[in-house]
């Protein structure tokens, strides 16, 4: 186990997240543009990024509001699309167990796909480290700051980024870089294959519910084969 100061743990989280900004920043700018096109006022579009703070859910919410969908449907859709975050919550819960409540509230607010993905390899390496939560805070804060600035830019500029740059490909590539080295036994390979295949098969389901079902299928497959301890 490495000894880390809070500052070095925070910076480790920030650094782990930085490559994802290649994909997140254009996504945030496009969100700002799409929200304005849906008829949402600029201030409301920008504030959604801190009040909801969930990329794909914000796109969906902006589109539903623009289409005049009932509020209850919008709330339900946002809940469904973010359901996978419950898995991240369960995954980091043991690591955050001993922290004061203000830390748990803060880190729960910052618990996105990207922050979880960036921090989890380091959290697995340092589960007992007294500064492990600073890694998650660093990754979460870096994503939060980038997302706020990117959506602000989208709202202010209101112009499309040049398309065809493929910058959004940075996110799947970063997830590959994080996941592939974790696959070091048959159970983990089964979890990945089943989750990936199920996600493709269930992609037509509304509100990305297929993602949550696919993750559950992968968990079940991995646990069924079982890891040798």
């Amino acid at each position: 186990m490495r000894r880390m100061t809070p500052a070095s743990a925070f910076l480790l989280g920030v650094r782990a997240l930085m490559p994802m900004h290649l994909g997140v920043v254009p996504f945030g700018v496009i969100y700002g543009v799409v929200a304005l096109q849906s008829g949402i006022p600029p201030l409301a579009a920008f504030l959604m990024s801190s009040l909801v703070f969930a990329g794909s859910a914000q796109f969906l919410l902006a589109q539903l509001v623009g289409a005049g969908a009932p509020a209850l449907l919008s709330v339900g859709a946002v809940g469904l699309i973010n359901l996978r975050h419950a898995l991240y919550s369960a995954s980091v819960a043991p690591i955050l167990h001993a922290l004061p409540r203000r830390w748990k509230l803060l880190l729960a607010y910052l618990l996105t796909d990207e922050a979880y993905a960036a921090a989890i390899p380091h959290l697995i390496d340092n589960p007992q480290s007294p500064t492990a939560h600073w890694i998650l805070f660093g990754a979460g804060f870096a994503l939060w700051a980038g997302w706020q600035l990117a959506t602000l830019a989208g709202v202010l500029l209101g112009a499309q980024l040049p398309s065809g740059l493929d910058l959004d490909f940075a996110l799947p590539l970063t997830f590959i870089a994080i996941v592939v080295p974790m696959i070091d036994n048959r159970a983990r390979l089964a979890a990945a294959l089943v989750a990936g295949a199920t996600a493709v098969l269930l992609a037509p389901l509304p509100y990305k519910t297929g993602l949550f079902a696919a993750a559950l299928a992968g968990l079940g497959a991995g646990a069924f084969i079982g890891e040798k301890r």
Binding site: P121, L211, G222
Partner: peptide, 19 residues
């Protein structure tokens, strides 16, 4: 027993449809 597979299963489910 399911928890250790969360990063692999969830992040793969996000990634494979993109590919």
């Amino acid at each position: 027993r399911w928890l250790p597979f969360v990063p692999i299963a969830a992040l793969t489910a996000l990634t494979v449809p993109e590919l």
